[in-house]
């Protein structure tokens, strides 16, 4: 399998090798001391290099706090160079909000500084990182060259942590992967929600412990007095619209799965459910519905199926 992936990666790299594969990362200031590298709302593809995720950093008096590192070693290196063009201050701390590849596979570029995450994130990355890497090499080819899983070196506890004049409130939540960190900068009012909030991009469910858990996390985040919200994917917002969209979408998905199972539909019927017009502005809804039905249908079936064999 791995050999197969490598061959695919080599094959994909051949026509690209002549051109220069380079990420053109342009950090944009979104608040005091605060910068965003905004990814597209597309899926991973060889033509975007996996530049589909939001990465942010805060330039504090004690150095730069970086929130997530992107999809590849090459991305991480480009990110570090881009930060260096904005500030001469050193990187003080790198945070991995959760273990998904687009948030942690740039870690190698920061191997000389502390990389911190929730304990659960480190465990999940240790268990699943190799499989993620296989899949990303398949999807992105040469963009991934040299990328290996580098685990976080420090464990974050929830609570307030002061770094270089910024009071960062760390929230340990679970809805997206089972170990999801959100960061509220009380000093600037910026909430870094990471993948607990997708905005104008369909949310992904491969590791969610349950849509109800995710909804509870959103209720907690929405209470925070933020002035700017940075989602994991999609544009920043000053208002509450991303929360309204998330609740609406999660509620629709939960209802769809519940009703499809209750009606005796099979998985393909559920995957082909019409998507409401009001979600037309959200990218990749059909693609993610196919994935979500794959991930979640058995859990919903289990709530309706009962034991029918004669051994009972």
């Amino acid at each position: 399998m791995r050999l197969c992936c490598m061959l695919v990666a080599i094959f994909l790299s051949l026509p690209l090798a002549a051109g220069e594969l380079a990420y053109d990362l342009q950090p944009r200031q979104i608040a005091t001391d605060t910068w965003l590298v905004e990814g597209s709302t597309e899926n991973f593809a060889a033509d975007n290099g996996g530049e589909i995720v939001n990465v942010a950093f805060i330039v504090t008096e004690a150095g730069v706090v970086l929130i997530d590192t992107g999809i590849s070693r090459r991305y991480g290196e480009a990110l570090r160079a881009a930060i260096g063009r904005i500030t001469a201050r050193p990187i003080a701390l790198v945070i991995n909000t959760h273990h998904h590849p687009d948030h942690v596979f740039g870690n190698q570029a920061f191997a000389d500084v502390p990389i911190a995450s929730l304990a659960g994130t480190r465990e999940l990355l240790a268990a699943q990182g190799a499989a993620f890497a296989d899949n990303m090499y398949r999807l992105l080819g040469d963009w991934m060259r040299g990328t290996e899983v580098l685990l976080p070196t420090q464990t974050l506890e929830p609570g307030v942590r002061e770094i270089g004049g910024h009071r960062l409130r760390l929230l340990a939540l679970r809805g997206h992967t089972g170990a999801d960190l959100a960061i509220f900068d009380e000093t600037t009012g910026v909430l870094f929600a990471s993948d607990l909030v997708f905005y104008q991009r369909a949310l992904t469910t491969p590791q969610t412990p349950g849509l109800d858990v995710w909804l509870a996390d959103l209720a907690e985040l929405e209470k925070l007095p933020y002035t700017l919200l940075v989602p994991g994917h999609g544009p920043v917002a000053t208002g509450r619209e991303p929360f309204a969209q998330m609740r609406d979408y999660l509620g629709w998905l939960d209802g769809l799965l519940r009703e499809a199972v209750a009606a005796g539909k099979d998985m393909n019927e559920a995957m082909n459910t019409p998507i409401p017009e009001r979600f037309a502005t959200i990218s990749l809804t059909r693609y993610e519905l196919v994935r979500s039905v794959s991930h979640l249908y058995p859990k919903y079936e289990a709530q309706v199926f009962r034991r029918v064999d004669r051994r009972e």
Partner: peptide, 9 residues
């Protein structure tokens, strides 16, 4: 051999 299931109208 455990079977879980249901009938749906």
């Amino acid at each position: 051999g455990e079977v879980f299931g249901a009938r749906f109208a």
